Simulated scan of single mutants.
Amino acid sequence: LMAHTKTDTEPISSPGPNMEPQEGSDCCSCPEKWVGYRCNCYFISSEVKTWNESRSFCVSQNSSLLQLQNRDELGFMQFSKRFYWIGLSYNEERGAWLWEDGSAPSWDLFLSLETPDPKKCIVYKPMNGVVDESCEKENYYICKKTVVDSM
C-alpha cells in the first residue's frame, strides 16, 4: 500500500501552461479561475495588458497586483517562461520603489535587477528575476489576494 503523505517538497507537476495546483489546495478556497497556494489566491492572466490596466483589473477583482513575500512564493509556477507585471512602482514623493500597500520590497527577492529605471514598471519571471519595462508595454500579469484564515 502506498501511503500518501502531504509534504511541502516538490509537487509532482508536468511543466506546461496548465500548472494549476488542485482546487482548494492547502487551506484556502479561491474564486473560480484563481489558483490557491499557501493560503493566498493568485490570478494568473492569460491575456496581456499595460501595467495600469493590469492594476485596475486586479483592483476590480478585490485584489492587488502581485506583491512577493519571498522568492519561492510562486513555487507552483517555477516552469513558467513568461514575464508578468507585479505591483511594484516608483513613488516620486518618497523617492523609492514601493509595493501597492506602501511597503518597501526586499531587493534580495530579485537576483537580476540592480537599479530599475523609475520611469518604468517591473515584470517578474517566477523563481527567476525581474526586468524593468515601459509601463505602456502589454504583458501578462498576476493578481494576488490574501485569504484570511477563519480559525
Rank of each mutant, 00 (worst) to 15 (best):
D108I: 10
G75F: 14
C28N: 02
M127S: 02
S46P: 01
K119D: 13
I142F: 03
L111V: 13
S134F: 05
Y37L: 09
M19F: 05
F83N: 14
L66I: 05
D132P: 03
V131P: 00
C135K: 04
G75Q: 12
P116T: 09
L109G: 01
V147P: 01
W51Q: 10
E53C: 06
Y90P: 08
G75K: 13
G36S: 14
C41N: 06
L88T: 03
W97L: 12
L65R: 03
S80R: 11
W51T: 05
N40T: 07
W99S: 01
I142D: 05
Q69A: 11
G102V: 02
F43M: 05
V130H: 00
F79R: 08
G24K: 07
M127C: 00
P126C: 01
T7D: 15
F110M: 07
E136G: 13
A104V: 11
S45R: 06
D101R: 03
S54L: 07
S89R: 13
V123I: 14
W51M: 10
Q67Y: 01
T5C: 03
S45V: 08
S56C: 06
L109C: 03
C39I: 05
I44D: 05
P15E: 10
D108V: 10
K119S: 15
N91C: 04
K125Q: 15
K145Q: 15
S106F: 15
Q67V: 08
E133I: 05
T146E: 14
L88S: 04
D8L: 13
P31H: 02
S150E: 11
R94N: 12
C28L: 05
V147C: 12
W51P: 04
S45L: 03
E32F: 05
Y90A: 02
Y84V: 09
L98S: 01
R55Y: 11
W85N: 09
K49T: 10
N18Y: 00
L1W: 13
P11M: 04
N18S: 04
S56Q: 13
E53A: 15
F76E: 06
